[in-house]
Amino acid sequence: MLNLDDCVIENGNFTLNADIQIEVGSSIAIIGPSGAGKSTLLETIAGFRDLKKGQIFWGGQQISNLHPGKRPMAMLFQDGNLFPHLTAEQNIALGLRPNGRLSRDEDAQVQSALGRVSLHGMGARKPSELSGGQQSRVALARVLVQRRELLLLDEPFAALGPALKADMLDLVADLVAETQTTLLMVSHDPQDARRIADQTVLVADKTVHAPAQTAKLFDNPPPSLRAYLG
């Protein structure tokens, strides 16, 4: 279980309160008006922001003092998910060994991850030689080899067209189901949430609300969500 225990997050003169629990293996959409603090929340969980108050636990272990790279999670950002001067394979390999050379066995894992995201034979290409959708697939392949227990998505597919984005979300849904990964995904689109997230967390009014059933939440939205949805 991911437990945000009485957390206060400060960003400039903006504060956000979070006191929620998230079940292992669930897929959670984080939704709310822009500027409400969705990305801030994700960045705090990932360790890029300090907590003003409170603690974060994963499976009973406190993780809020850990360096971002030591936390049990992989994260994809809005952009800059690949190093442009490295090939697709090299980018994926960083998920296994950020600081060294791969063994033959690990190399095989990279190849199989490439295959899993349907990029057979494209490992030697650099990001600039891949389409936007293919770049997203490389990033997902890296997440796959990282084998972290949590996956945080900060709208990494926002720049893709609707059909391509839907494809990516389906791929994400398949991958997290195969690996029993817990998914936290920022989105501003209710369709995304309905598509792959069984539960949704609403971030509004300086508060991170407890997860609710996605379908129920959107069928009967509270006032702050209704104002956002229009």
Binding site: A46, P68, G69, M73, F77, N99
Partner: peptide, 23 residues
């Protein structure tokens, strides 16, 4: 690229030699 490197648990030396210098 800093956040990505951190989330991958890249060491500072690796970031310097594999990302910063080539870029």
């Amino acid at each position: 690229h800093g956040r990505l490197a951190l989330s991958l648990d890249m060491t500072k030396w690796t970031f310097f030699t594999r990302v910063l210098l080539p870029r």
